[in-house]
Nucleic acid binder design. Structure first.
Lengths: 231, 231
DNA sequence: AAATGTGAAGAGGTTCACAGCG
DNA sequence: CGCTGTGAACCTCTTCACATTT
């Protein structure tokens, strides 16, 4: 079976439920909204201008039912036309706004090894809303490396660089796990409120900071658990 | 607030609920079990031999309550001693068995760009149970590259190489999104039942194949949604 | 006729409160 | 007394069925 679904948040996000342009959004399904957004970008390129909840479900390919889509979208307002479907353009705009994808975001990549490099390349190539604003590392042979117009700075210049830049929105941590906690605290102290952490540890961050982990070993372990079960 | 939780599966996994060494496991909380496992590995190194559900919750740092831990663990059997706590060693063994981390797994990395390289390095360095068994790419300048004892093969040799190796357990897809669907089908046809996909598309895979996505843009989008909400 | 929007029912995970046991 | 183990209450998300609207 195909289970390719964006990470969901569970308990943690419940506390976040809030208002969004006056509309109460169930924060729990943000990953699904993102799936819809991606699918719509795709069909939009192909010139499709109307989708139904059924065709959109088909586009998302996995485990999303038409009913679920209607329920999710209905939270955002009355968006469709009965007997007809949803306007792709309008829906795209709305989802982009709700997801925050209607504006640019500045990102600092901390740790410019293979992973940091890969993430940087991926983002700059594929996600135009995410602007790489600063690169940091600790290794002498990495510091000073150029990437497009950016130079990799020493991690000790984190605070001063961010100050110069007027801050960044998101910090991506691609550093060894021993360093991750300290780096997280430093970027948080420097005013960054969102962290995407690739180090396999449970970060402790200040209250206002939203940290999210991508845990490779954890993901693999879900697979091995599955493989073990189907002996 | 810290929300660093491993991706959970939701609907998809429900269908998987099954028996595991005669114990019915709620497949929904595998990511949590993995968190416990990791925390226990850590304290085990420090010589701690007993934990309580409370101390374990503290170690996991985020959004896990002692009650939740007891509930999760009680699914696996009667593991603790009332008035005392859990034996770290015994619990570690059990969790490893349940998660499939008590055995080696052979992994093929498809796509040996920066990301593939990073994943390969990470796994071989940090996760001894995951053995990199084969590397594939399509770019002429990457093919033939050496990594430890392995040589990067052309993707067209996927089937023959896997046959030679007697198969692998998991395929990690670090290829461009245009290529991902085709690669997924090929590795599935070659007998690989577990896929970890980094390409930002919804994979369609055969019934018996368990595919899991890690979606960088999706994760960032959760962050930007949060940042937008707290304007 | 067709597809949305939605109250109500259902399912499943989480929390509570306390019984049970060492 | 302390901490686990667990049925029951609770709560949230999902699914169903159909009224509603174009």
């Amino acid at each position: 079976m195909a289970i390719s679904r964006i990470a969901s948040l569970r308990a943690g996000l419940r506390a976040l439920a809030g208002r969004k342009n006056g509309v109460r959004v169930n924060e729990f399904n943000v990953p699904r909204l993102f799936l819809y957004h991606r699918a719509l970008v795709e069909v939009s390129k192909q010139g499709v201008s109307v989708v139904t909840s059924e065709s959109l479900a088909e586009l998302c390919a996995n485990d999303v039912t038409p009913t679920q889509i209607r329920k999710d979208l209905s939270q955002l307002g009355t968006l469709g036309r009965r007997g007809h479907g949803y306007q792709v353009a309008a829906l795209l705009d709305l989802l982009a706004r709700v997801l925050g994808l209607d504006q640019d975001w500045r990102i600092a990549i901390v740790g410019f090894g293979y992973l940091g490099h890969a993430l940087t390349t991926f983002l700059s190539y594929r996600e135009e809303r995410f602007k790489i604003a600063a690169l940091f590392d600790k290794a002498p042979d990495v510091i000073g490396q150029k990437w497009n117009d950016l130079t990799v700075r020493h991690i000790d210049e984190l605070e001063s660089t961010l100050r110069e830049l007027g801050g960044v929105d998101i910090a991506v941590l691609a550093v060894p796990s021993k360093a991750a906690q300290e780096v997280a605290e430093r970027v948080a102290a420097a005013g960054v409120d969102a962290i995407l952490n690739f180090a396999p540890i449970a970060l402790r961050v200040p209250e206002q900071v939203f940290a999210r982990n991508i845990d490779l070993a954890g993901e693999l372990s879900i697979l091995t658990h599955y493989l073990t079960g189907s002996d």
